[in-house]
Write a protein that binds this DNA or RNA. Structure first.
Lengths: 294, 294
DNA sequence: TTCATTGATGCGATAAGGTTATCACAGCAT
DNA sequence: ATGCTGTGATAACCTTATCGCATCAATGAA
């Protein structure tokens, strides 16, 4: 009852040649061995597949049916083996990747474009979460990797810095500091700040808080915005000022001005985290495409 | 390098259970045998498929990839075996069937409908030819069977009568014989006949010629028509009379009248021919659906 | 007839695959 | 610590499947 691929290959060879001897030669077998294999196959199917006329072989109806399909099946098997090998090298399979909203607002779109180009047969499963949740998912191995902006002390994960972004400040266009080219952070000590809630981007929140403390003041947070665009609009409305990555300066439209900060600038730091004993080879490919940590 | 189905089935069982012992039990094997099969599979693929942690098994990236596809492949193999068995019983495969134009004008449409219903998975290859050509094609085994109306002496084929159709006569509606219920054939001795050319339907042609000879006259053929409808129209135009199967009497429209002939009626005889050593089991199924030779 | 060629068969050698017994390691309860 | 249990791997042995060789029976050609 057991179809074996060896038998199907032999059947295909016999059907190709309609001749046991030549088929056996092609298979690097002797003719008797091949005869037995075909008998075995016919026993497994339960019906004759070949008509052995004394001067040659013809296919029976069932034999023709099988012959028309065997090539496809054998091809499928070979393909499966090949693609599994590719999967081991990261060229196929699934990559479950987590990311923060801020990464998506920054370098992630171009990274994903490159990833698709380099690994066209890998199916991406993307998930946006906050940094802490992402780290937890990675440690549970429910994500193969994640790009986060805060690296906590979650066990079982390893992280590597991959990109920094300097923060600048968004001012209303009538603000006196707009005449300056770069703003020293202490000059903002008396401003009203519009920030994200801590939960939305804890990485950014912590960075800003510590930078301000180093600059000698505690920021006066008067509003919390749910998105960057909203924060910039609130600046335009004169409610206060807000921080923004330098490479997102183009977010600033009418009524606002973007200004870089003077060194030491607060920096937004991104990390790639992966499970400590992760083995998804797609992650290795991903790493090759990451922006340098410089 | 050789993937064998046995190895894939074993891999599937291990991946199902993530446990060698339980998988081995399901496969009716001992655990060491299974361990070696998996090693063998990994060697064939060239990459590890399982991570053997001391307290259980997890799939590697490549292992997950393979696992997602193995079930489909094994299903394909099982299906192929099952369908090949069905093919041997005539339930699958191809039936190359020839027929004459006259058969198609008579009982063939309903026969084909029944055939489709009974063998929905058999692909029909239909071909319309003249009887002689069909007999030749069957003897060359380029057709599995054919329905013809003239059985000649082509070697290598066997034929069986399957249906007779009594012929009637189509008269113009002003013809004096239309008052009769049945027409004796000799009464038509002086008529002008419209027939098919010999080549178009030699079976019909021969039948009519011999019937007329038995009735004591040689028909006066004045026209040859290429189709039944055309012949009936020519009768309506007053060019002569023509023969027509009784069950095709509904062909007669305005200007013509169909009359049965008095016994002995000339009969149209159909035969099923098949190769002498034909083995397409679909033909056996076809035979069960044929109209009785009565 | 004689010979070449077809696929099938009997038999001994051998390789492939299975079982048994055992090992090394990890986690857990004592 | 100390067994105890459960994990998969390994080694030795045995069974079975598969192979090649020699040969056979049937057919067609010379």
């Amino acid at each position: 009852m057991n179809l074996e691929l060896r038998l199907l290959k032999s059947f295909q060879a016999v059907a190709d040649h309609l001749n046991f001897r030549r088929a056996a030669e092609e298979l690097h077998l002797t003719q008797p061995a091949l005869s037995r294999q075909i008998q075995q196959l016919e026993e497994a199917i339960g019906k004759p597949l070949l008509d052995r006329d004394r001067r040659g072989v013809t296919l029976t109806h069932a034999g023709r049916f099988l012959y028309e399909r065997v090539a496809g099946l054998l091809h499928d098997v070979a393909t499966l083996a090949k693609e599994t090998r590719e999967a081991a090298n990261g060229g196929r399979g699934t990559l479950a990747l987590g990311y923060t909203e801020s990464a998506m607002a920054s370098f992630l779109p171009s990274l994903l474009r490159n990833l698709r180009r380099r690994l066209p047969n890998v199916s991406l499963q993307l998930r946006q979460e906050h940094s802490e949740q992402l780290a937890r998912e990675v440690s549970l191995r429910r994500l193969d990797a994640a790009i986060i902006s805060l690296v906590g002390q979650v066990p079982g994960i390893i992280s590597a810095p991959i990109a920094t972004e300097a923060l600048g400040i968004v001012l209303p266009d009538h603000h006196p500091l707009t005449v300056k080219k770069e703003i020293p952070l202490p000059a903002l000590a008396k401003e009203h700040f519009i920030l994200f809630p801590y939960q939305v981007n804890p990485g950014l929140f912590s960075r800003i808080m510590s930078s301000c403390q180093n600059a000698g003041f505690v920021p006066n947070v008067i509003e919390e915005a749910q998105s960057r665009i909203l924060a910039v609009n609130m600046v335009a409305a004169g409610l206060g000022v807000t921080f923004l990555s330098e490479n997102l300066a183009y977010y600033c439209g009418q009524g606002t001005v973007f200004k870089p900060l003077k060194k030491p600038k607060p920096l937004m730091q991104y990390y790639l985290v992966e499970p400590a004993n992760g083995e998804n080879p797609c992650v290795a490919e991903l790493k090759k495409l990451l922006p340098s940590p410089a």
